[in-house]
């Protein structure tokens, strides 16, 4: 059995480095797809995804690099997709915003906010009817909570006691708009608690703590036969879409960033691993991930674009 601390570090490190690799190459204009990076938020996707079983399923938003990478640990098809190559996840048709991986139970991601929420509930309904015991994790932002469909979906999941884990990845922002300017209430958890679901909340940036929280929530919900609502605070380091810091625009303060940076998810998980593993072993792990990313990018850059016929494929069965 692989070591939990190491596996979680592998994931936060992979997400961070893969996204940093995107940043390094993005201005080269080869990855023609809008990217919503999750740098700063890695503990959530890594912690939650690793707490899921292989049978569990996931839906997410356009900010889903972390989900894809945590779940698949795969980078060849990932980078090929960002480069628009035929060897990509969706042959270049998806780009960054519509990641999915059928064989990993990752049912998809959508760039229209909130659209993915009822889809996760529907997947859970199918699981119930087909007699499956797996859970469906629905990743949603604090902005998606504003949409009516969130309330409708949460209500139906609770009404039917479906095995849905609502993972509210709360970075406090919807593009540039702060939660206080969008929410008439103080706490998202107060809203969730109005419904019969198991509500858990955390401000941790430590993947291992989030992992433990999910495991606890699951155990409790398996007993109570209720959906789970996880409220996970986190911080987006960069602009909403794109590769740059955006503190200069003044809508949020750099000092807030400094506070989060001090408990950076990659740093925190590395510290935990350092208590268990000697430094050279950690460095070796990091180097192997770096090499994997470099190899995948090289491969993507040398891969062909889809040919013209591809445009008409996949419209219908």
């Amino acid at each position: 059995m692989s070591d939990l601390t190491e596996e979680l570090y592998r994931r936060v490190y992979l997400i961070r480095k893969a996204e940093e690799a995107i940043i390094e190459r993005y201005t080269g204009d080869e990855m023609k797809t809008p990217v919503h990076l999750s740098i700063g938020q890695e503990a959530v996707s890594a912690g939650v995804c690793y707490a899921l079983t292989p049978e569990d399923q996931i839906v997410g938003s356009y900010r889903s690099h972390g989900i894809y990478l945590s779940r698949t640990l795969e980078t060849d098809r990932f980078f090929a997709e960002l480069y628009g190559r035929v060897t990509g996840i969706a042959k270049g048709k998806a780009g960054s915003m519509h990641l999915a991986s059928k064989e990993h139970g990752y049912l998809g991601s959508s760039a229209v906010v909130g659209t993915y929420i009822p889809v996760g509930v529907g997947a859970a309904l199918a699981n119930r009817i087909r007699g499956r015991a797996n859970w469906v994790a629905v990743f949603l932002g604090d902005g998606a909570i504003d949409e009516g469909v969130f309330y409708e979906s949460l209500n139906i999941a609770c009404l039917k006691r479906l095995k849905v884990i609502f993972v509210c990845e709360d970075n406090g922002l919807a593009i540039h708009s702060h939660a206080k300017d969008r929410h008439a209430y103080d706490a998202i958890t107060d809203i969730a608690r109005q419904y019969p679901c198991e509500v858990f909340s955390s401000e941790s940036t430590v993947a291992e703590e989030i992992h433990a929280l999910v495991s606890r929530a699951r155990a409790q919900a398996e007993e109570s036969h209720r959906p789970i609502f996880l409220h996970l605070k986190c911080y987006r380091y960069l602009e909403h879409v794109g590769i740059s810091p955006d503190f200069k625009f003044g809508y949020r303060s750099e000092s807030e960033f400094e506070r989060w940076k001090a408990v950076d998810p990659v740093l925190m998980q590395r510290k935990l691993l350092a208590c268990k593993k000697p430094e050279p072993e950690i460095a070796r792990l990091e180097r192997s991930i770096d090499a994997q990313i470099a190899k995948s990018i090289d491969l993507a850059e040398r891969s062909p674009f889809p040919t013209a016929e591809e445009i008409h494929r996949d419209v219908f069965a």
């Binding site: 797809t33 190559r85 270049g92 780009g95 013209a308 591809e310 445009i311 419209v315």
Partner: peptide
């Protein structure tokens, strides 16, 4: 073209 808009540039151009 009567398809959902693809992401990759060569198909987008078509």
């Amino acid at each position: 073209e009567h398809v959902p808009c693809p992401t990759t540039r060569p198909l987008e151009n078509l």
